[in-house]
């Protein structure tokens, strides 16, 4: 019961990294979703620091499919997708 309550204090976000950013994470493949527990005052910058992904390597930060900046405050259940510069067509 106590454990469940403690867990309840943390929010979880679902993270995916792509196009080479996976090299900064242990044992994660591109596009493989993983959950990260975040504190309620965390923004995207805190998340990148926590994951040890260099901010300058991340060009596009989509949260729930929309572009956000580093100061975006995370919400429980956010889908966070991180990309280096990509393009094509």
């Amino acid at each position: 019961m106590t454990v469940a309550l403690l867990r309840g204090e943390y929010m979880q976000v679902e993270v995916r990294v792509f196009s080479g950013l996976e090299k900064f994470l242990d044992q994660k493949r591109f596009g493989e979703p993983f959950s990260v527990e975040v504190q309620d005052n965390w923004d995207l910058r805190s998340l990148l620091d926590h994951l040890s992904i260099p901010k300058e390597q991340v060009f596009t930060k989509l949260v729930n499919g929309k572009h956000q900046e580093l100061d975006y405050k995370l919400n429980d259940g956010d889908r966070v997708s991180l990309f280096p510069p990509v393009g094509g067509g």
Partner: peptide, 24 residues
Amino acid sequence: HPVCGQGLPAYGTNVLMNIINEAG
């Protein structure tokens, strides 16, 4: 330019699949 100099040579145009998907 990061897209022309790095992104396109590394994965080609199909690098778009995931970002277009994530963008919905």
